[in-house]
Simulated scan of single mutants.
Amino acid sequence: MSIEPSAAVPVLLLSVRDEYAGRRWSPPGHHWPAQPSAVGGLDLVAGGTWLAVEPGDGAGPGGSKGSGPVAACLLNGFGTSAPEAARLSRGELPLLAVRGGRVDTLDLDRYDPFHLVVVRPDGARVLSWGGGADGRLVELDLPNGLSVVLNDGPEGLAENRTASERIRALMAARAHHFRARFEAEPRPLPLPDGRDTERAWGDWLPLAAGDGLPLDASAALVQRREFGDGRIWGSSSVSLLALGPAGVRYDFAPAPVGPGGEDWRRVEL
């Protein structure tokens, strides 16, 4: 996440979806008749999404006019799982957020731990839930500059974090490598215009595709991990979003991403 209030496009978001292999999904589109203006990838198992975008074309909450764009990105968290008999899908949370709903009014005990990043042209806020009878919803506004949100929360500092040293080390290596790489390249200006993905995102695009690292590298952004017992965890897609006064731009690619930029497509909003 990059936040630069003085830039023509103040907020840039890179989102990598990591999931167990075999969980079926569809690319971003208008998948929800009850929210016809919302766009996002569809989880075919539970019907929700990991990232939703509301373009703000005048179809805001309650029929409000002139609402700006908003996006919401979901990460699984660590902590206490919800009771199986009462559990609700976390994939409904991004859709709730982009239509102006309040997460803090939900019965959060019915959701497994999560981090929900809510993004607008003026900044981003992370809502974190760790579950459990004594759990509380923690809200944090991300600062200006580059921020990294992991399954261990913003900068890996959530109240509830993984107990696995291996997973913690992999997340730390990923964050360290890519923070330095993004800081070293010029910040792009991906306006919601007719330019293709490569011209819009410039030197950041190869980084978003994985920076040439092998899928099993410790610092891999686009990754594939085998955790034993036939469990394979990896990246299924990469999304790039830019939010500003002129609107929102959304570019998407399935993972792993080809080196020539041929896998990227502009998502129609």
Rank of each mutant, 00 (worst) to 15 (best):
D107K: 08
D107R: 13
L108E: 13
D109W: 12
R110L: 03
R110P: 03
Y111G: 00
P113G: 10
P113V: 04
H115G: 04
H115D: 10
H115P: 01
H115N: 05
H115I: 01
L116T: 02
V117P: 01
V118G: 06
R120D: 12
R120Q: 13
G123T: 00
V126L: 02
V126I: 03
L127C: 03
L127M: 11
W129A: 03
W129Q: 05
G130R: 08
G131K: 05
G131N: 08
G132V: 02
G135D: 09
L137T: 05
L137M: 11
E139R: 09
D141A: 14
N144D: 14
G145M: 12
L146Q: 08
S147M: 11
S147P: 01
V148Y: 12
V148D: 10
V148T: 08
V149Y: 04
V149M: 09
L150S: 09
L150A: 02
L150P: 00
D152N: 15
D152I: 04
G153F: 08
G153M: 08
G156Y: 06
L157D: 15
E159T: 07
E159K: 10
E159C: 00
N160P: 02
N160I: 01
A163F: 07
S164E: 13
S164Q: 12
R166S: 10
R168D: 15
A169F: 05
A169Q: 12
L170M: 08
M171N: 10
M171S: 15
M171G: 10
A172Q: 13
A172D: 14
A172E: 15
A173H: 06
R174L: 06
R174Y: 05
R174F: 01
R174W: 07
R174A: 00
R174N: 10
R174C: 06
H177A: 11
R179C: 02
R181S: 08
R181G: 01
R181F: 04
E183P: 01
E183Y: 05
E183I: 05
A184K: 09
E185A: 11
P186T: 08
R187P: 01
R187F: 08
P188T: 10
L189W: 04
L189R: 13
L189Q: 13
P190V: 12
P190Q: 14
P190R: 15
L191S: 02
L191C: 03
L191F: 09
P192S: 15
G194K: 12
R195D: 04
D196F: 07
D196Y: 07
R199S: 12
R199H: 09
A200Y: 01
D203T: 07
W204Y: 09
W204A: 04
L205S: 05
P206Q: 14
A209C: 07
L213A: 11
P214M: 15
P214R: 13
P214D: 15
D216K: 07
D216I: 03
A217E: 14
S218G: 10
S218D: 15
A219L: 10
A219E: 15
A219G: 09
L221G: 02
V222Y: 05
V222P: 03
E226Y: 09
E226K: 08
G230P: 09
G230E: 13
R231C: 04
I232M: 12
W233Q: 09
W233F: 15
S235T: 08
S237C: 14
S237R: 08
V238K: 02
L240G: 01
L241P: 03
